[in-house]
Amino acid sequence: MREPIERLFKNLSLAIVGKQDSIQLVLVALLSRGHVLLEDVPGVGKTLLAKSLAKSIEGKFQRVQCTPDLLPADITGTNIWNPQSREFEFLSGPVFTNVLLADEINRATPRTQAALLEVMEEQQVTTDGVSRSVPRPFFVIATQNPIEYQGTFPLPEAQMDRFLLSLSLGYPNEADELKMLQRIQGGHTLEELTPCISLEEVQTLCQQCQQVRVELPLQQYILDLVRATRNHEELTLGVSPRGTVALQRTAQALAFLEGREFALPDDVKRLAPHVLTHRVIPAGGRRAATVINRLIDSISVP
């Protein structure tokens, strides 16, 4: 399965300049059937990344601009009365897609944020007692600005736990930003990006990821990392069992992307900050990333 992976990675690199690590992490989440939280300032390519991914996998893309007046039905859909048929019909919302971009998710009210809980975990939407499955694959990329907090609603722990990975694209370096300007001057736009992999191939890749071996010593290492967060004096909330599963699944996906049939401790160490940091609550004004990095350094590697 190396060929479709290389095609997908190359295609995304045409749109997103100089962010190979971030692209790889997004693909890890996609193949793990998870979701991504992008915490970054405006204008660094978050929307472009989501659109490029949807176009590359020949999938449907929907974007929701989260605002305080956004309602849950604006995301999930609602039943409307049809006077011709004299019965209610379901009008599907933007979650019925393959790639959903929830832009500035922390600007939506907690009630609207909660509308994503079921669909992100169970791949279905329930309205008026009827459950409807969303298309597969279903991939959410949510963004929030870590600098601006005025008029925002912090995501609750249950919502944060739904995201498989959190990451930041960051500013490009000088050489990459120059290359970006040259591409734009040459007329290279998102519209020129062509699909390079089908949705069926994505589903096959997801199934192949599950076959990557994770040996018992590595599983114990994952447990040691996660359980250490639950008794750490600098953390008031540790990582849930969902986080334990997420760390193993992402390690399998990273090994698969790199062409290996088995996961390594280095896979877990690389992914642990992105999988664990947003799932913990630090105490006393400490930074979660700093605590997690120190914890990773303190746990012995098998």
Rank of each mutant, 00 (worst) to 15 (best):
T109W: 01
P110V: 06
P110M: 07
A114F: 04
A114Q: 08
A115E: 04
L116P: 01
E121H: 10
E122D: 12
T127E: 11
G129M: 05
S131M: 08
R132S: 13
P135F: 13
P137G: 05
F138G: 01
F139R: 05
F139P: 01
V140M: 02
N145Q: 09
P146S: 03
I147E: 13
Y149H: 14
Y149K: 15
T152M: 03
T152Y: 08
F153A: 10
P154L: 09
P154D: 11
L155Q: 01
L155E: 03
E157Y: 06
M160W: 02
M160P: 01
D161S: 07
F163I: 10
L165M: 11
S166Y: 05
L169I: 14
L169P: 06
E174L: 13
K179M: 11
M180Y: 12
L181W: 03
Q182S: 11
I184F: 13
H188K: 13
H188C: 03
T189K: 10
T189N: 12
L190Q: 09
L190I: 13
C196Y: 04
I197W: 07
L199R: 09
E200N: 13
E201P: 00
Q203R: 15
L205H: 00
C206V: 14
C206H: 13
Q208E: 15
C209I: 10
Q210C: 08
